[in-house]
């Protein structure tokens, strides 16, 4: 099982986290077209390599953070936000 370096708690098992995937920016609600909204909801780059994803340490500190993960090697590279 992959380990993830939570920027708050340090190295923990991946099962403590929830993966929220890539997070495209939220379009402006007032002007968004259906295409833009569909992109926001459903379309992901699904990169074979390093992706930047949002993860949630749900069984730990309950903080959201961005993680760079290699989808080929299934390895957590680094998490953003060196908070301490």
């Amino acid at each position: 099982m992959m380990q993830i370096n939570c920027p708050w708690c340090g190295l923990r098992n991946a099962t403590e986290f929830k993966q929220h995937g890539e997070k495209p920016p939220r379009p402006d609600v007032a002007n968004a077209t259906r295409e833009q909204w569909a992109d926001y909801l459903y379309f992901r780059n699904n990169t074979w390599g390093v992706v930047k994803e949002q993860w949630f340490h749900s069984s730990g500190c309950r903080q959201f953070f961005m993680l760079h993960r290699d989808t080929f090697a299934n390895k957590a590279i680094r998490s953003e936000g060196d908070v301490r």
């Binding site: 939220r26 949630f56 959201f64």
Partner: peptide
């Protein structure tokens, strides 16, 4: 609860 935290923390 997760939903509230997500919107508060990330948005």
């Amino acid at each position: 609860w997760d939903w509230i935290e997500e919107w508060l923390q990330t948005f």
